[in-house]
Nucleic acid binder design. Structure first.
Lengths: 249, 249
DNA sequence: GCATATTTGTCCGTATGTATA
DNA sequence: CTATACATACGGACAAATATG
């Protein structure tokens, strides 16, 4: 299987001086070339790159060279470019004319903008819930329990992941394809922001309990109160993330 | 310049029996090949197709064959596919695996879903407006006046266009890149829905006055009342569109 | 400021696989 | 089931823009 996962940790031990100079992630990406299975080549290439980007292996500002990647992934340039388009659409890559594609380096403005739309959607979803079958909250319960378990284990990355799933499932309650799609993109961008922040514990820890509190309000059918709580929740989360972002290394 | 605009009207005189059989729009699209000017080839191709789709020249369900289009537009398959990606991202085309790209044939569910997200975004924008400089409402005033003028002239397509611009500018007041992006896509999809509906007058006419009323509320700083009015406005618009959609030809 | 090398943008021809008649 | 039409994918080539010395 040739597990090259250690390059992930080595990139943390020896952080690159400037974006774009570290190409160690190429080996890891090449290791994924074997597990191609599904659908179109471009989709599969996009899957591999998506995982690597959301994992934080490819740091913001990194350029994805067509030449190097087509070699590493053993696909043609056209297919690779098709995958780039897919990921650009998801906000996981940015395209600069005649320069190539890069892992986006999100700014404070992006963070605020992102939370603006998240808040609008999620609060609207909660506010207009009605007659919810109890079992529809089960995915949310699972996510809360997963985050609590991960917190006990000290795995704050897993806490963050469970937290994102919680919000994804929350929006899913509305049953809106387009809201799900937009939320997916927003959370992907949010994940990019997490990677430039040093202390995940302080960011995620407070929201484990608040997720559970929110869940109880939903179970009790108190949608207006839940929406109000969620609104403040999101404002706090944004403020905390903004503070951490400003004090990043 | 070889103006072939008349094929546009001929397609209205002789509507195609079933989707995909009418290829008369190819000539019109080919006529646009001359006015290529800006940026990348894919962008220019996307511009041409976007105009034709939003005009309603390419009816829902129409397949865009790579072979025919590359001939008509005098570009390579790669460039054409790149343009397809751009338009798919905007919701103006749908991609079916191993079958090609098609002008989307939106359903009632899509209509409801689309309005769900529109309502969430636009109402949130209005509700959280504050300290708005008077001149920022000028684009909205222009749109309202344009729609009123178009109504007097009996040009209901122009009324619909001005109405969409009004909503685009409304969301623009929030200054949120992502909200603008999503709204752009939602309005593009909405425009596709309009094309399968016979009577534009009955759909757009009531909202000319309501847009003006909404504008006055905004100018007066009555954001909560404006949000409530907009919410009902959107519900009514959705209901009317849904009714027209069910009774379409 | 200029010349060079590198990288992307675009195009072509062809081979393969998939869906539909 | 076969045949056809089409999308998918590949590799090579040149032009154009950018980055580097």
């Amino acid at each position: 299987m040739g597990d090259d996962a250690r390059v992930s940790s080595s990139s943390e031990i020896r952080p690159p001086a400037e974006p774009g100079t570290d190409t160690s992630w190429l080996r890891a990406v090449a290791g994924d070339a074997a597990l191609f299975d599904r659908s179109s080549s471009a989709e599969r290439v996009a899957d591999v790159l998506r995982r690597r980007i959301t994992e934080g292996l490819l740091r913001p500002g990194t350029q994805l060279s067509e030449e190097l990647l087509k070699e590493a992934l053993q696909v043609s340039r056209n297919t690779l470019r098709e995958a780039f388009r897919l990921l650009t659409h998801e906000g996981l890559l940015v395209h600069k004319m005649h320069r190539g594609v890069f892992v986006p380096d999100l700014t404070e403005d992006d963070l605020v903008d992102l939370y603006r739309l998240r808040r609008a959607i999620e609060c609207d979803v909660v506010r207009s819930l009605g007659d919810l079958a109890p079992d529809r909250l089960q995915p949310l319960r699972d996510d809360v329990e997963a985050s609590e378990a991960a917190a006990l284990a000290g795995d704050w990355v897993a806490v963050g992941t469970a937290n994102m799933r919680f919000h994804r499932h929350l929006v899913g309650l509305a049953g809106s394809t387009r809201m799900d799609e937009v939320t997916g993109r927003l959370l992907a961008e949010l994940r990019l922001l997490f990677h430039v922040i040093a202390t995940p514990q302080a960011l995620h820890e407070p929201y484990i309990a608040r997720n559970r509190a929110l869940l109880e309000l939903l179970a009790a059918g108190e949608y207006e109160r839940a929406a109000a709580e969620l609104n403040q929740y999101m404002l706090d989360s944004e403020a905390g993330l903004l503070a951490a972002f400003r004090g990043r290394g």
